[in-house]
């Protein structure tokens, strides 16, 4: 019968007919970079992209938040949101730094525990993150609090914890091995590693496929046999562990930790994900997209600095960009709904 033909016609054509949606975002990136290049020649009389040193700094600036953005991306794909990542950065920075202080430092937080091998602060830090994520995930999955509220609570609580931990005192003097976690291009390397792992996880494993399914239709996912509650706990734990990792990297890089570290990182991370095409309604997005979103973010910030634009303008323009990204996403969805 006629319909049957349409089915079996071109088996080869079936695998990948559509262009990857990331291509659009990549084009946006290229466009923005070119605009800055042109503006650079006009207003500064020099190249924006030609300066490798600047690009390196730019990537370094954004990759810590990029680590968080990878975790946040999978949370948003699952249909949720995580506002606690910035506070987790602060809390974990404090805790891990307090266990990473160099041997013989007199004013150490735990004088008996100085000069520990780097795995100790690293693991304890990640565990703290896991704990915060578990609380987030458990609240969201089992008490059905909206993710916005649950993670808002964690945002305030974790920040409070960070301040309480040393009564507001900064913690410094890490061991060399701890400091090396943030030295040089280490943050970029760590980001790349995380991004590759999660790109594979989201695309080729059950973990990733279930995350998309839950974000697309949680009820249908449950009826299809997915343990939605347990899966959501995993998603939030992973997000917070990645935020913790970012916290460790920031602390190691600055060789000091302060309770206020990571302030507003959650919003930047969400912005990177959204700019990268992750849909706030869940079910769509990718790590590649977020990575491109991260670079777009970096190009814009460093571009404005390059043009010597006032920091206040930068903040405002950042806000506009985030809203524009969401508008673009909403528009894409409407277009899919009504093709005329």
């Amino acid at each position: 019968m006629a319909t049957q033909d349409t089915n079996i016609e071109r088996p080869a054509a079936r695998a990948h007919r559509k262009l990857p949606p990331e291509l659009n975002i990549l084009l946006v990136l290229v466009g923005i970079a070119l605009v800055f290049e042109i503006l650079g020649w006009i207003f500064q009389g020099q190249s924006f992209l030609g300066n490798v040193g600047r690009l390196k700094i730019m990537i370094l600036q954004v990759s810590v938040i990029g680590i968080i953005a990878v975790g946040v991306t999978q949370v948003i794909i699952s249909g949720g949101i995580d506002l606690s990542s910035g506070s987790v950065v602060g809390a974990v920075a404090m805790v891990s730094m307090s266990l990473a202080q160099a041997a013989g430092y007199e004013r150490a937080i735990y004088p008996a525990l100085t000069g520990l091998p780097v795995v100790v602060p690293l693991l304890v830090g990640l565990l703290c993150g896991a704990l915060a994520g578990f609380v987030n995930g458990w609240l969201i999955a089992y008490t059905r609090i909206p993710p916005f509220i649950a993670t808002l609570g964690m945002m305030v609580t974790a920040r409070g914890f960070a301040k309480w931990y040393t009564k507001g005192q900064p913690v410094s003097f890490p061991t060399d091995s701890f400091a090396s976690l943030g030295a040089g291009m280490a943050p970029v390397m760590i980001f790349l590693l995380v991004a590759v792992i999660f790109h594979v996880a989201m695309k080729y494993t059950r973990y990733g496929k279930f995350t998309y399914a839950i974000g697309a239709n949680a009820q249908a996912a449950r009826v299809s046999g997915i343990n939605v509650e347990r899966h959501l706990v995993k998603v939030y734990v992973i997000a917070a562990v990645l935020a913790a990792l970012a916290g460790i990297v920031v602390a190691a890089r600055g060789q000091t930790a302060q309770a206020g570290m990571g302030m507003m990182y959650e919003l930047d991370a969400i912005a990177m994900a959204v700019i990268g095409g992750t849909s706030l309604t869940g079910g769509r997005g990718s790590i590649i997209g977020t990575s491109i979103g991260m670079v777009i973010f970096g190009v814009i910030i460093s571009g404005f600095t390059f043009l010597r634009l006032d920091a206040y303008y930068q903040e405002m323009i950042k806000g506009v960009i985030i809203v524009a990204a969401v508008v673009a996403d909403t528009y894409r969805q409407q277009k899919r709904g009504k093709k005329t």
């Binding site: 496929k209 998309y212 399914a213 249908a220 009826v223």
Partner: peptide, 13 residues
């Protein structure tokens, strides 16, 4: 619509 399809995902998914 409610407990069956993932409308935003593709056929394979």
């Amino acid at each position: 619509k409610e407990t069956g399809c993932f409308l935003d995902l593709d056929c394979i998914e």
